[in-house]
Simulated assay, not measured.
Amino acid sequence: MTFTLATWNINSVRLREALVCRLMTEEAPDVLCLQECKSPVEKIPFAAFEALGYRYMVARGQKGYNGVAILSKLPMEEAAAEDYANLGHARHIAGQLENGVTIHNFYVPAGGDVPDREQNVKFGQKLDFLTHMRDDFMAAKPQKSILVGDLNIAPREDDVWNHKALLKIVSHTPIEVEHLTQVQAAGDWVDVTRKDIPEGRLYSWWSYRSPDWDGADKGRRLDHLWATPDIASAAHSSRILRAVRGWEQPSDHAPVFATFDL
């Protein structure tokens, strides 16, 4: 079985319904994982996606905030939905395909602007969320699993436009990178994107604050696609669709793709 999977922080699935449909039409991933849907589940425009062949959906939603969904052309059932760090946020959903592959879709808290949990509650929530993820994966080593989502951390020096300039900026601070490294190690997760594209600067997010986002290219790789070692070698053809960031009224994130032969 071969399937292509994409992950995309859509920044409002209702506002950008047309962009989701465009991606489904032009790129046709078999599975599309969305974050920051900003919608109750019942108001996600599922009928439009179903008409394009995405007949299966598992999701967790909130009004105007957070929200994760997995849309699939392949039969899929909900496998889990955890409230990490007990925040009461819709930030995780997992679905299982008929071949037994479990897909975890995460939206890790952004963490605010100040990288200090004493001064910034949101930063503490982010670290707690990652610690909870680590402990979960350590307790139950995942197998035959894929983890995707907006993890809101750019871990490598070449995952940001300027390593030294961003060391004190939330999303690239050493403490965040260390927490994400522990999450990855706890599940033995393989960074599929970097397995396929091991060298060079690679970004999936460009700020709305930069009108010349493409020319300035001050990006960060905040969106990730991982797999457990038992299936990571079956992954290939990783890519980030940078051009999508230039669509009309876009999300500030670009979708990340990989194909699996399982």
Results as ranks from 00 to 15, higher is better:
I70L: 09
E42P: 00
A18F: 13
E42T: 11
T25I: 08
S72T: 06
K43H: 14
Y65S: 13
I70E: 05
A80E: 15
E36L: 01
L32R: 02
A80Y: 01
K38T: 00
T25E: 15
E42K: 11
K63M: 08
P75S: 10
E36I: 04
G53W: 05
M57A: 04
G67W: 02
Q35T: 12
Q62S: 04
I70D: 00
A69K: 03
K38V: 04
K63R: 14
E50W: 10
L19P: 00
R91F: 06
Y65Q: 13
A80G: 07
I70Y: 00
V20Y: 08
L71T: 08
E82N: 10
T25S: 13
A51D: 13
A51F: 11
L71D: 07
N66L: 01
N86W: 15
V31T: 05
L34T: 05
E42G: 00
Y84H: 12
E78C: 03
L32M: 07
E50F: 12
E78Y: 02
A47R: 10
L19C: 00
A85V: 02
E26V: 06
E36M: 07
M76A: 03
R22C: 06
A81T: 12
A90E: 02
R14D: 07
F46C: 00
V13R: 00
E17K: 13
E77W: 05
A85G: 04
L23T: 11
D83A: 05
H89D: 14
L74N: 02
E26Y: 08
T25Q: 12
N86S: 12
Q62W: 02
K43I: 13
L87A: 10
Y65N: 11
P45C: 02
A28I: 09
M24I: 05
R14A: 05
E27H: 13
E50C: 10
E17A: 15
E26K: 11
E36F: 09
V58G: 04
Q62F: 05
G67N: 08
L32Y: 03
K38E: 01
I70M: 02
E27R: 15
P45Q: 03
A28T: 15
E78I: 12
I44P: 07
L19S: 11
C33D: 05
Q35K: 06
A81N: 11
D83Y: 11
V68E: 03
R60S: 08
G67Y: 07
G67S: 04
M24K: 00
S12D: 09
P45M: 06
F46V: 03
E78G: 10
A85Y: 10
L71I: 00
M24L: 12
A18Q: 13
R60G: 04
K38C: 06
L23M: 14
